[in-house]
Amino acid sequence: MALAKIIVVTSGKGGVGKTTSSAAIGTGIALKGHKTVIIDFDVGLRNLDLIMGCERRVVYDFVNVINKEASLSQALIKDKRTKNLFILPASQTRDKEALTEEGVQAVLEELAKDFDYIICDSPAGIERGAQMALYFADVAIVVTNPEVSSVRDSDRILGILQSKSKRAEQGKEPIEEHLLLTRYHPKRVELGEMLSVSDVEDILAIPLLGVIPESEAVLKASNQGTPVILDTESEAGMAYMDAVDRMMGEERPLRFLEVEQKGFFKRLLGG
């Protein structure tokens, strides 16, 4: 598994935006010209295909490939909108026990020959599914909402990345960790109802990859089956693109962290 970079998108807590982020970041990397595959590790609760809008094209899935009931080329779904992008859907009828370490490794090794980036969309929790999603990772994107329980769970996942990943077990260079703060609501932060970026950075102590503002565009995109990053007019879409740019080593200032100022005078006085 030397060629492709394996990125796990994980969080511990559910509903924080792992799949939305996997879809957006995977699409963003593919837009940059890198051959990318997104794997749905949430066996039994298949969602990625819905977000990517390819649910009607699922014939074979990840578990079929692990069990050698189908070949990778049969199970991989080529994205219709974005060049270089493929999806490996989860099985809806099986459970996480179907993810064996050998099976997952074999699939990743085969993908690594062909792809530049492999995005593993982790299920919630810290059990088998989540552990398998992160085990082989080189890079982890820890998706966190600015609230205490999500931050606590992210902290837990960071501990697992350091102790139960293949890199940790073999004593290799540790997984590269990135914080992706999603559903950020500047107004509520200002009111003290939500943790601020610096609060979360202080608790988790890992580098910040990006802050995605709470946006109606995300829900709209999910329901339409379009990764939100393709909505280039939306703040969330732009923030995801910034995050992808940063992953590729470009510098991008953080945006959308401030409450929109109402008028000229307020901006003048508030600045």
């Binding site: 769970d153 902290d155 837990r156 960071l158 501990g159 350091q162 102790s163």
Partner: peptide
């Protein structure tokens, strides 16, 4: 030398 995370 590394942060001790929740659960550790």
């Amino acid at each position: 030398t590394k942060p001790i995370r929740s659960g550790q």
